[in-house]
Design a protein around this nucleic acid. Structure first.
Lengths: 248, 248
DNA sequence: CGGCTGGTTGAAGGATCTCAAGCGTTGTGG
DNA sequence: CCACAACGCTTGAGATCCTTCAACCAGCCG
């Protein structure tokens, strides 16, 4: 397990699929070479917990491929997802040695890692790195705020619709013109994970998915594959939080 | 109204009450002089909306005194608070010309402002400023994530207890040794604002406050003043999200 | 085949919301 | 100076949405 099959082809930052939007997006070629010399790859399997809250965390990383989640737990087992991390997203917090959240791989993952301390030094030495990390963190904060509206004020049906739209937007390859209403995509989360994202139970998630299917808003095939049959209605159902980036 | 009575004494950054933890905390004295020369103060009254989501926003600012909130609205009037901003907190997003959230003053406020464009230039020129803003943004993101757990998974009673602890911790002057259980502080939010913070109705907030009082966990005097009668129990009730900074 | 996992569906219960009335304080105008 | 309207808060009663608990179903793998 954890064989690194494609090590060689990955070692070149030039060919990195997330280069344009990753932490290194603003770096010039000299800076890239510096980063390239200290980076290393790690793979994780679907379902694996990468670190638990409270564990020591000695690296930071960018997601090259796959999906990870950040989760907070209460003693009695209640769990809330607080981060959904897709390719190019950054993992870890400079200046913090101990993880604040559980970090888990929900699919097989490849991560581009840096040991924490050297990375922190680079952060001080390379304004481009600092600027890009700031920008990414501000984006995440905006996303967290939209998410808070969902958690605090939306109904179960609105929550599910919003999640589907979000996954669709962040997941489907942005074709120049959207192919009408019939997007087909895979939700990289189990029902339980969707429930943890949305702050509800898996049963309610399941019911709302079925309800949206019955109403002709979406289609379901396989277990995680969704077709948007009526995008305008899906957006309508989502409640359109003051066009918080979802409508675009 | 909006008389600036203490302008002269405020013009000196040296005497600024939030200097230690504001955006300028890491700047050296040369950098401080630069900032000082372009900063300006603005006052706002309690209840005033500073900007609406979608409005042009041509400045960024630090809160010198008072309390502001960021809010998201849905078309049908549902509202969720997504930011609670206290002295030293930073307002506005570099690189964004249009506000993403409603920004309102819940108390009388004094803000230390910079025009956006010059500030963005300074951000590029002063790594210290960039580093500090990154640090503050990361802190806010952590806080947003704790908040998401509250919104998604906590009961009404837990929500109220958590808010009280949070306000107590961020509001009371950190005396060297905490004076036993009997903290007395003011919640700078109306019941409606508390409800918007917690993702519930004002009636439920009110009921839970009364319930906590009946159970001897807190005392209430005036309308916004709270005495913590039994801190351990209050922390217990709050559900103590994996000691997410609340216990400490 | 049989157990296991993840997902769906049903029925009942409960936490929170909604709607409504009541209360105390504040400010205002007669 | 009092009456009264306005506002913010509290309390009550009924309705509702979501959860809980349980059964069931489909696919997968030993």
């Amino acid at each position: 397990m954890m064989l690194q099959t494609s090590r060689l082809s990955m070692d070149q930052c030039k060919t990195c699929p997330i280069g344009a939007s990753a932490i290194c997006a603003r770096c010039d070629s000299a800076e890239m070479r510096t980063l390239e010399s200290v980076k290393f790859y790690r793979r994780f399997q679907a379902g694996q917990t990468i670190v638990y809250a409270g564990d020591r965390m000695d690296f930071v990383a960018s997601i090259v491929s796959g999906v990870a989640t950040l989760n907070l737990n209460m003693e009695d087992g209640r769990r809330q997802m607080v981060g959904l991390l897709l390719p190019a997203d950054f993992i870890g917090r400079p200046g913090r040695t101990v993880a604040a959240f559980d970090l888990m791989a929900t699919t097989d993952m490849l991560m581009c890692c840096f040991r924490r301390k050297p990375f922190e030094d680079l952060l001080l030495a390379m304004p481009h790195l600092n600027q890009r990390l700031l920008e990414m963190t501000l984006d995440e904060l905006d996303a967290a705020r939209d998410w808070m509206l969902l958690l605090g004020r939306k109904t179960a049906r609105e929550k599910v619709a919003t999640l589907l739209i979000m996954v669709m937007r962040r997941t489907t390859t942005r074709s120049p013109e959207p192919p009408g209403d019939l997007q087909d995509f895979e939700v990289p989360l189990s029902r339980v994970e969707m429930a943890d994202f949305l702050g509800m139970t898996e049963e309610t998630v399941s019911r709302q998915m079925s309800s949206l299917r019955r109403d002709g808003v979406i289609g379901l095939s396989g277990i995680r594959r969704v077709q948007v049959a009526d995008l305008p209605q899906l957006v309508e159902v989502a409640g359109d939080d003051a066009d918080g980036g979802l409508v675009a």
